[in-house]
Design a binder for these strands. Structure first.
Length: 420
DNA sequence: TCTGGGGTCCTAGGACCC
DNA sequence: TCTGGGGTCCTAGGACCC
């Protein structure tokens, strides 16, 4: 039987802030989202004061002041850096490791005799070397490891480590859980499960899997199996490439001018393009979206998105931001008070087929030569022979092979020869 | 005045193409 | 008179996670 450990950093962002400000030890600390909008992390002391996840800051300022809550703006660069350090310590405790999020990792604990002892050693070394406290849940499946971790965090007497290996232990732990304490079940799903008579984690575990599948779908059936100790999700040892890249921000105040919206779109394009480039990907489409302020119910509401295909060769002067602005023009409606805008890069593909010397600036002699080559090839062999994809570089182009591309080449000079 | 940002997966209808 | 069906893309929305 395989054994997994879920290692979860306690109050991660708040713990990171404490690393460099030892005076915050023992103090209630909260970390705020972008724009200092709402609470996204709380120290135990802040939790004890009743500060909730997602609480808006502007509605809680007085309360925070009254209780001496230390408020920090978020610093994701710092958190990412510390996360990397934690993971490198974890790797010393198991080579089979899945980084699940910025503050969590699943480790295979197969082959270790003293599981709890191994976990305690891990815990103290992470604390010693990085200063971050973690909790460890040990169980045969991811879902049970999540549950075990929850117990480890809650129960003061288990020293940050808890194992759910036997069915008796699992039953005892799940008895204290609500459905929504389970990984993957939130309010809506819990309500739907209630409709078919499933109101507790134990009822879910003991339900007929095929019936659950029929009524609730395959995802919930897998949860039943995982709760029984039957793994349905294995470790993902290598980080899969992103399928989408999103860049968005809320405006500090309502935006009514088109130009202001367009400026924000261009900023988002630049940030998303940076991420795209860093991951060596190309985008096949760009989607732009806007929304009004859903909290202002007296405002007229509007939410829309428009997508522009980037794989069409005809638009030889189109850059990523041109494409995004084209999409923005299609969804722009005057008279609304916009609160949020963003872009998503879609249909991402690895750009390893694209050699760096195939990248060139748009509107340059090289790019125009490239366009002539493509036109010639496509005229001769059909328009989809080669496709052009906007690159991650703003104002740059790269080549991506089409579905049928007998003339595909990764060499710039070859390509120019093909086109005559 | 002030309520985050970045992801995944799924579903469904309409448009459009062949 | 009988009036297809499969596939893909786009838009929109739902649900969940950290």
């Amino acid at each position: 039987m395989g054994v997994l450990a879920l290692v979860d950093c306690n109050n991660f962002y708040a713990s990171c802030e404490r690393l460099f400000q030892p005076r915050l030890k023992g103090q209630p600390v909260v970390v705020l989202s972008n724009n200092d909008g709402c609470v996204i992390a709380r120290s135990n002391e802040a939790k004890a004061l009743g500060v909730g996840m997602g609480d808006p800051w502007h509605l809680n300022k007085q309360k925070f002041e009254k209780h001496g809550v230390v408020v920090r703006s978020s610093n994701y660069t710092l958190y990412g850096d510390i996360s990397g350090r934690v993971v490198s310590v974890l790797r010393e405790f198991s080579p089979q490791l899945e980084v699940y999020s910025i503050d969590e990792a699943f480790l295979s604990f197969d082959g270790f005799a003293d599981l709890a002892g191994h976990a305690r050693a891990l815990r103290s070394r992470v604390l010693q070397w990085t200063g971050i406290p973690v909790s460890v849940g040990i169980a045969p499946t991811k879902m049970l490891a999540k549950a075990a971790n929850r117990v480890a965090k809650k129960a003061a007497d288990c020293d940050g480590v808890h194992a759910l290996l036997s069915e008796a232990e699992q039953t005892r732990a799940l008895e204290g859980f609500a459905l929504t304490d389970l990984w993957g079940i939130a309010e809506r799903l819990a309500a739907r499960l209630g409709e078919i008579g499933i109101r507790t984690p134990l009822q879910l575990r003991d339900a007929d899997p095929s019936l659950v599948r029929e009524r609730m779908g395959v995802a919930i059936e897998r949860m039943v199996l995982e709760l029984r100790g039957v793994p349905t999700q294995s470790l993902t040892l290598t980080t899969p490439a992103n399928k989408t890249i999103l860049a968005s921000r809320s405006f500090g105040r309502a935006v009514v001018e088109r130009q202001e919206l367009e400026e924000s779109i261009c900023t988002h394009v630049a940030r998303a393009a940076e991420k795209l480039r860093r991951q060596n990907l190309v985008a096949g489409a760009v989607m732009v979206f806007v929304t009004t302020n859903k909290f202002k119910t007296e405002d007229r509401q509007y939410a829309a998105s428009r997508t522009v295909d980037l794989s069409v060769a005809s638009a030889d002067t189109m850059t990523l931001s041109n494409a995004a602005l084209t999409a923005a023009a299609r969804l722009w409606r005057p008279g609304y008070r916009y609160k949020k805008a963003g872009i998503t890069l879609l249909a991402l593909a690895q750009s390893h087929n694209v050699q760096s010397d195939l990248w060139c600036q748009a509107d340059t002699p090289k790019s125009k030569a490239l366009m002539r080559v493509l036109d010639a090839i496509n005229a001769e062999h059909g328009r989809d022979t080669l496709k052009l994809a906007a690159s991650g570089i703003e104002r740059g182009w790269g080549l991506r092979s089409g579905q049928r591309s007998p003339h595909y080449t990764t060499d710039w000079d070859d390509l120019l020869k093909v086109g005559g």
